[in-house]
């Protein structure tokens, strides 16, 4: 199951960003000869498993999801066709989905750019390091390796308002530390700190792209008397812009499905467990400030078992994600050689 795991975006971004402009070898000159039956069979055997997977785990569920979104379905009875009722509830009635969508949007418009900016900043610092480059790179990359659940548990403890080391330190300087994960207005920024701490995955991509910028361009610019700012603006940025775009898109897609960090932070910060405190009571703590769109979809689908409604939420998520992907494909022109 693919997850919002940021590590997964490392090679994605790198590979795509660097390969998109030229994919010459994929299309060798027209092979003049016909393939033999044997060769056809071997190629068929190579693609048969993914082809089944494509239908069973992608195309079928996509279509079935659309159908379910028009039904009242709880897995116990058969789906009952209710037309647009789910969408009506989603857009005009659901008291929590608006807040959940806004929280997700917060992560899209704040978390993604801040993570990218800090990654770029640190990557720029690291490009100048000749000595111990590997050491520094590893040091800043390591937090990205820590399992997200572990890092969230750790952060919530560190930022515990009463007993956590961060507020203890602040108190030593005479500062009355805030409530962090227990304050609805600070819980998302607290996760932002975590996101920046874990920015290593994006940072290594930027670092590689920066090191890949041809040196002679800088040298030529220096001869022309360009300032550091001008060099960054007119040489560095254009060279790494494909990487920036791809990382922005994968970042946005990951932010749209932001789940694990927020869910675990809510339940750890809440500190409340018990007999009937089901996940629907724990998610979003404090005051729904960490309830993201995908969490609410999870609660509606798999706690309340309103699968038809969850399917409608998935359709909306699909539309948004597809729009973001379309932007990427258009801008990057990834398939120009193929399509037209």
């Amino acid at each position: 199951m693919p997850d919002a795991n940021p590590i997964a975006t490392v090679p994605r971004a790198r590979a795509a960003a660097h390969h998109t402009p030229n994919t010459p070898e994929a299309h060798p000159k027209r092979a003049g000869r016909r393939r033999t039956l044997r060769s056809r069979l071997s190629i068929g055997s190579m693609v048969i498993l993914p082809l089944i997977g494509l239908v069973a785990f992608f195309l079928y569920p996509l279509c079935a999801n659309l159908y379910y979104s028009f039904t009242n379905y709880d897995l116990v009875g058969s789906p009952k066709w209710i037309g647009l009722r789910n969408y009506d509830y989603l857009f005009t009635q659901d008291p929590r989905v608006g807040g959940a969508a806004r929280n997700t949007l917060w992560f899209v418009v704040i978390l993604v750019p801040v993570r990218m900016a800090s990654s770029l900043g640190i990557a720029l610092l690291l490009t100048r390091r000749k000595r111990a480059a590997g050491f520094w790179r590893t040091l800043f990359y390591l937090p990205a390796l820590v399992p997200p659940v572990a890092s969230v548990v750790g952060f919530v403890f560190l930022f515990n308002p009463g007993t956590g080391p961060i507020n203890t330190l602040l108190r030593k300087f005479g500062i009355d530390g805030p409530l962090w994960f227990n304050d609805p207005s600070l819980s998302k920024p607290s996760l932002l700190l975590l996101g920046v701490w874990m920015m290593g995955d994006v940072m290594v991509i930027f670092l590689a792209a920066l090191l890949d910028v041809p040196k002679d361009q800088y040298e030529a610019a220096e001869l022309d008397g360009a300032s550091a700012r001008q060099k960054f603006r007119f040489i560095t940025l254009p060279n790494i812009s494909p990487v920036l775009l791809f990382s922005a898109v994968t970042g946005v897609i990951a932010a749209l499905q932001y789940f694990t960090e927020a869910a675990v932070a809510s339940s750890v910060a809440n500190g409340k467990t018990g007999i009937d405190a089901g996940p629907d009571r724990l998610l979003g703590y404090p005051n729904d400030s960490l309830l993201t769109y995908t969490q609410w979809m999870y609660v509606q689908g798999f706690n309340s078992f309103q699968l038809g409604y969850a399917a409608a939420m998935a359709v909306v998520l699909f539309v948004v994600a597809a729009a973001v992907i379309a932007v990427l494909l258009r801008r990057a022109g990834m398939f120009q050689q193929k399509g037209a």
Binding site: P61, A64, Y68, I253, L256, A311, A314, A321
Partner: peptide, 13 residues
């Protein structure tokens, strides 16, 4: 690129 949640409901079913 699509979030896995878009196929979650039918797959679970």
């Amino acid at each position: 690129l699509l979030p896995p949640q878009v196929t979650q409901v039918p797959l679970y079913a």
